[in-house]
Design a binder for these strands. Sequence first.
DNA 1: GATACGTGGGC
DNA 2: TGCCCAAGTAT
Length: 375
Amino acid sequence: MIEWSPSKIKAFQETLLAWYDKEKRDLPWRRDHAPYHVWISEIMLQQTQVQTVIPYYERFMAQFPTVEALANAKESDLMKAWEGLGYYSRARNLQRAAQQLVTDHHGVWPTTAEGLRELAGIGPYTAGAIASIAFGQPVPAVDGNAFRVFSRLLEIDDDIAKPKTRSVFEAAIQRMMPADRPGDFNQAIMDLGSSYMTAKNPDSAHSPVKAFNQAYLDGIEDQFPVKTKKPRPVPVDLLALVIRRGDQLLLLKRPNSGLLAGFWTFPMVDVAELQAASERDLVLESDLSRALQKWAMDEFKLALTAIGFTGGQQVTHTFTHRKWRISLVVADLAVDADLSYFPGQWLTPKAVAKTAFPKVQTKLFDQARALKLME
DNA sequence: GATACGTGGGC
DNA sequence: TGCCCAAGTAT
């Protein structure tokens, strides 16, 4: 990496902030610098594009306008508000932090990055963002944009996928923070990273800071940032059970930790586990049907009158680290089945709209409707 | 320090 | 499709 002189740093600050003053994006969370507004927007924006966040942010603020409202919200309402945004622990941590603010801090915000880090869901980036934007603290906010922008400006070739690299960038950026406008500086870097200095197809030739972009000037911009690749999602084959009782469907609550924690979905069976548990490979549908029936009997202590493949296309859903390939299987319950040990809940068609579901479950609902398994 | 954790968009 | 990316954090 290269070093900049104090005069060059000063020139960069002035160029960047002049551009920001003229071209900054008009975003809903930029109407003021209220810590609550900055905070909610920053959490929503984690790993999520601005265009996606805007409508969620507007609805969220209308529904939960204050820290107190958020702290006292029903979890089901909160999850419904967050439905579709992903990384749902963000929403749960949001409420925990709101409760921390109310109970531990008597409603008074910590104003330093270190203090903000104590709140649930606030890591080094978000702490820096809130401290600088809401409280004027001269601290860096190192997100993907900052990694990308400064790796090119300074030709920093440390691997940004490695946690310890963060400190390299924080140290470099700390030296450049303007004492008077740290929040605008950090936000200007983000705007720069999402306009001229994008990950793909950057337009550095027209960038307001092209004269400071060492990698561009050297014709090696495409080499920055350095980032090791992540492994591809692992395929997992699953069966989703559409267990019916009249017009109602059985849903199970997923564990409170792990993937899609706490959400209600169709009962899911891992095919590999099912096969491992059976005496031999399940090749014929009749074999699978018997195995499933045994599984259902064992797990639910319920009598099933029928169980079998539905025939439709597989539903696929890809997460960051898993690729689910799901086949629907239908089962109709005996009308006099004993439900006393039932580990789930029956969902009426009407209730579907009021409950928060993860995307994969809405895909399963769609497929079930297409197969005439439900309304 | 590596891995888990959602979803949508671009090519 | 598959792969990468998008204002990261928790464990």
